[in-house]
Amino acid sequence: MKVRIHVSLKPGVLDPQGRAVHHALEGLGFAGVEDVRVGRLIELTVADDTADDALDAMCRQLLANQVIENYRIEKLAETERAG
C-alpha cells in the first residue's frame, strides 16, 4: 500500500522558505499570489495490513515534529496482487 504523509508547518509558524518562494513568484510576474507555505511530502510503501495507529505513530514519533508541524495521512490504492 502506498501512503502519502503530508507535513506542513502549523499556522502561525514563520516560514522563511515560503516567504522567499512567494517573492520569487512575484518576481516572475505572477500576480495574485497571497501566501506560500512550503511543506514536505513523504511517500511510504507499507504492508497492506499496516494499522492506521501504526501510521499515526510513525508521524508522531519521527516524520513530523508536532511542536511546529501538522501532518495528514493519505492512503492511496492498495497494492494490486496477482490472482
Binding site: V13, L14, P16, Q17, A20, I68
Partner: peptide
C-alpha cells in the same frame, strides 16, 4: 535535544534564510 523532547520548542530555518 529539542527533537528528543529533552528541551521544549524547536529550531526553525533562520528568518533571514
Amino acid at each position: 535535544l529539542t527533537e528528543a523532547g529533552l528541551l521544549p520548542g524547536a529550531l526553525l530555518r533562520n528568518a533571514g534564510l
